[in-house]
């Protein structure tokens, strides 16, 4: 019947566009990953343009697997994504439950809360690493210096001074260092995406069955068990959706990594690809194929999780 066919045809532009968008670059990446291809080479100028005669087989893949940063990059990718997911979901649920009931100024608090979500990721990173977390000029540095000054004052006190002298001086933390740079990234992305989780959970809480809750209160259920047995199960679906959307975005995190420490200590797969791509396109493409594989593994888990509930 023609009046069923036309409506179905309406999805073809979208499908075709995405198919081209996926297949052409992916095909080229695959091709580049099997040839020697560098941007600059005085010694081997023939490698500077892509050609089948520069075939390298799995050489690029071997090179990437042997490079010392590869495993580190996979670890960092997963560590950063999982930490952000964990923190945003916990904070998101707590805050959504907190602001779900009416209180004076609820509208304003909601506006304040969701603002970070609108901030450009690059601005977010610049703002946090310089003006807030910098160990000398940022608020962290200023706060630590202030506390140390107060402590110095307390040490001068006649009797209690001896007690305060036992306390150590506080040291500001540098968030550009190898050990801490991933923490800085997690902190700033959590700040930005918790509002998103709050928004989705809040919408979902508004559809919670209030009669059921009232019945639970009459039965003497504690606030905790109400939360545990009514609210939390109700939030299962939105949590799955928040996890999925964020995983999509955070697996390709780049700006924050670059701005915080240029990959020192927090290098993830996209950043490693970027580093290779400064000259060695072959290796960058091979890393890209690894990244596609990793994304697909994550995607299979996530899509199973959300896909089941999606079509209900």
């Amino acid at each position: 019947m023609s009046d069923r066919k036309l409506p179905r045809l309406l999805q073809t532009p979208a499908v075709l566009l995405l198919l081209v968008w996926m297949l052409i670059p992916l095909g080229m990446t695959l091709y580049f990953s099997f040839i020697r291809y560098v941007l600059n080479s005085l010694r081997r100028p023939e490698w500077t343009s892509p050609s089948l005669s520069n075939w390298r087989g799995f050489g690029n893949y071997e090179f990437v697997l042997k490079s010392k940063d590869f495993l580190l990059a996979i670890q960092n990718s997963l560590f950063i994504v999982c930490s952000i997911l964990f923190l945003t979901v916990i904070l998101g649920v707590l805050i959504a439950v907190l602001i779900n009931k009416t209180f004076p100024g609820q509208g304003i608090v909601r506006v304040l809360l969701i603002s970070p979500f609108f901030v450009m990721p690059a601005v977010n990173a610049v703002l946090w690493i310089n003006m807030i977390l910098d160990p000398v000029l940022g608020l962290q540095g200023i706060a630590v210096a202030g506390i140390n000054e107060i402590m110095d004052g307390l040490r001068q006190m006649p009797v209690l001074g001896g007690f305060f002298s036992l306390w150590p001086e506080f040291e500001p933390v540098s968030f550009r260092a190898t050990q801490t740079s991933a923490i800085a990234v997690i902190m700033m992305v959590t700040w930005q995406w918790t509002p998103f989780a709050v928004l989705i959970f809040m919408t979902s809480l508004q559809s919670e069955d209030q009669q059921q809750k009232e019945a639970a209160v009459l039965d003497g259920a504690s606030t905790w068990s109400q939360f545990r047995f009514l609210t939390l199960p109700h939030l299962g679906r939105p949590i799955a959706i928040v996890v999925m959307i964020q995983a999509i975005f955070h697996l390709s995190l780049y700006a924050e990594i670059e701005i915080v420490s240029r990959g020192n200590g927090n290098k993830n797969l996209p950043y490693l690809i970027g580093e290779f791509a400064n000259n060695n396109i072959g290796a960058a493409s091979a890393t890209g194929i690894f990244a596609v594989i990793l994304a697909n593994i994550v995607a299979i888990f996530l899509l199973r999780m959300v896909g089941k509930t999606l079509m209900e």
Partner: peptide, 15 residues
Amino acid sequence: MLSTKMLPAAAVLYP
């Protein structure tokens, strides 16, 4: 369609 969104941008940037 959603899975195309997971394609790492860095992997296809150069092409």
